[in-house]
């Protein structure tokens, strides 16, 4: 698949897609005190369409992961506005953000972030705990999610008993078991070898296509970014197109 590279701040070529699920206007995120302020994001304008596969690329320390945490309602911007499905994330209470994370967003991390003491099945179940489902329902849905990712024979294994690829697949099962609208992946292949990387990226692509997800992947890997519909490059705390970056 060729990435549909365009101006990331507009709908561009996504005319066939549904409406925008995200709209970011002049989003800034600063860290530290006045004297030592780090401008992780310094005026980001970005729209993301529903069902889009967007890659956020850029050098280390340029604000990729910070942008992902804002998109996933894990943090609030210092200024600017982030709208998700018409709702201003900055105006929501912490409990509403938690509800949003529980229902709408799935997260996949570079280091998998599985709970080491829980089995694969139990790790997947943790994503269903906020939904208040019965133990039996949680169990059956978790097993189904693992089976969808060909991990049903690893359900009772602890993370330490799984390979890196298997652990990442468990993390993906955990992210998808609640049927989120958005899947946010932060360097999902950063800790994997090339073969496993290809396998995981292929899996994400299939899930995105089959389930109609909005897939946002932060990566510094150009090969992975190249699989996305669109690439947003973060540099100096701002979003650019690859062409803008190349010409600068």
């Amino acid at each position: 698949m060729n990435a549909l590279i365009s101006d990331p701040t507009t709908q561009g070529e996504h005319q066939t897609m549904a409406g925008n699920i995200y709209e970011l206007v002049d989003v800034k995120k600063y860290f530290g005190s006045k004297a030592t302020t780090v401008r992780a994001l310094d005026g980001v304008d970005l729209t993301i369409a529903e069902n889009e596969f967007l890659a956020i690329q850029g050098p280390t320390g340029q604000g990729k992961s910070t942008l992902l945490t804002l998109l996933g309602a894990l943090d609030r911007p210092t200024s600017g506005k982030i709208t998700f499905d018409g709702r201003d994330l900055g105006a929501l209470a912490e409990s509403e953000l938690a509800q949003l994370r529980a229902a709408e967003f799935g997260f996949v991390f570079q280091t998998f972030n599985l709970i080491p003491t829980l089995t694969a099945q139990e790790n997947v179940e943790t994503a269903l705990v906020p939904a208040g489902l019965s133990a039996e329902e949680r169990r059956s849905r978790a097993l189904q999610a693992l089976a969808d990712l060909a991990l049903d024979d690893r359900a009772t294994h602890l993370p330490s008993e799984l390979s890196g690829g298997q652990q990442q697949r468990v993390a993906i099962a955990r992210a998808l078991v609640k049927n989120p609208r958005v899947l946010l992946a932060d360097e999902p292949t950063g800790n994997l070898d090339e073969q496993t990387r290809d396998e995981i990226v292929g899996l994400l692509e299939n899930l995105w296509r089959d389930r109609g997800l909005t897939l946002i992947v932060v990566t510094h890997d150009s090969w992975v970014a190249g699989r996305a519909q669109r690439i947003a490059v973060i540099k100096g705390g701002r979003v650019n197109t690859p062409e803008q970056v190349a010409s600068s």
Partner: peptide, 16 residues
């Protein structure tokens, strides 16, 4: 920290 951050990311409320 990482564990609790992950749980918060997947929707666990602080109370839980």
């Amino acid at each position: 920290t990482r564990e609790f951050g992950t749980l918060k990311a997947i929707g666990w409320k602080s109370r839980r």
